[in-house]
Amino acid sequence: MTTPPPQRRPGRPAQGDAPALSEDACLDVALAAFAERGFEGASIREIARAAGISHGLLAMRFGSKQALWIAAVDHGMMRLNRRMIATTRALPAAASVADRMLAACIDFLESLAEFPAIIQVVNIEGTQPGERLDYIVQTFFRGQDWPFTALLAEGQAQGVFRDVHVTVPFTLLAHGAGALVALRPLMAAVSPRTGKEPDGLARTIEAAASLIVRGLLR
């Protein structure tokens, strides 16, 4: 005799019945919401709905909206950092510092093309001082080791790169060249052919990274 499946009680599911929360997927949804609508415009309830989970479960996991913003920004920044480190470590030991810098810049822009929300959030928060901008600056620009910074210092010690502060080329990379891949609607409007060509984005990334590295050379 076949045992019938248990019947769920009417009403909301019990806490144990909630679907498992994929943290990375949830943070991607949250980061995209903060990138699109800003911190004030983003809603915890809308983020939960987009992630396919309950508002209560999201609040229980991350707490306040500020805590969710921090977790989402950490997630996006650390993904960029890990990818850049992996790329530079995989290069041949005999590669020149300029070639390694070019590879790091290309990988950074490819990462932004795949996950543009993080640079969009930084662009939003960078327009005015506040605790969220302070968090980004202290945690990632001053408290995190980036291959770009180490490669620039190495090239300067060798006399290969110009003696400029890291903020100059990194800002050109992240917010200059980065805009080419993060602001897709703008680029599609300005240069419609680039978005339609199969290798258009790849060629744009390589050209932008090459210009930055060539500009660093003495």
Rank of each mutant, 00 (worst) to 15 (best):
T2S: 11
S111L: 01
T2Q: 11
S96M: 02
Q120F: 03
G56L: 03
V122C: 10
D134I: 12
K65S: 12
L172M: 12
D199G: 14
F161S: 13
A18H: 05
A51R: 08
E36S: 14
A179P: 07
F148D: 03
L109G: 09
S111E: 02
A18N: 03
G126N: 06
M60R: 07
R79G: 09
P192G: 14
L133H: 10
G11A: 05
T194N: 03
A174V: 06
L91D: 07
N81Y: 00
I85S: 02
Q144P: 08
I70S: 00
S191A: 15
R37F: 01
A72T: 02
G176M: 07
R8V: 10
T194S: 06
D163W: 01
P169A: 06
H175N: 09
E36C: 13
L109W: 04
L57W: 00
F34Q: 00
I205T: 07
T204D: 11
G143Y: 00
E154Q: 08
R37I: 00
I118R: 01
E206D: 13
M101K: 00
W146K: 04
D17E: 15
S210D: 11
R162E: 15
T167C: 13
L91Q: 15
A67S: 11
S210F: 12
E36K: 10
R9K: 11
I118M: 09
V121W: 00
I136C: 13
G195H: 07
A202S: 09
M84L: 15
A42K: 02
V190F: 05
R82I: 04
P6S: 15
T167A: 12
L91S: 05
L152K: 09
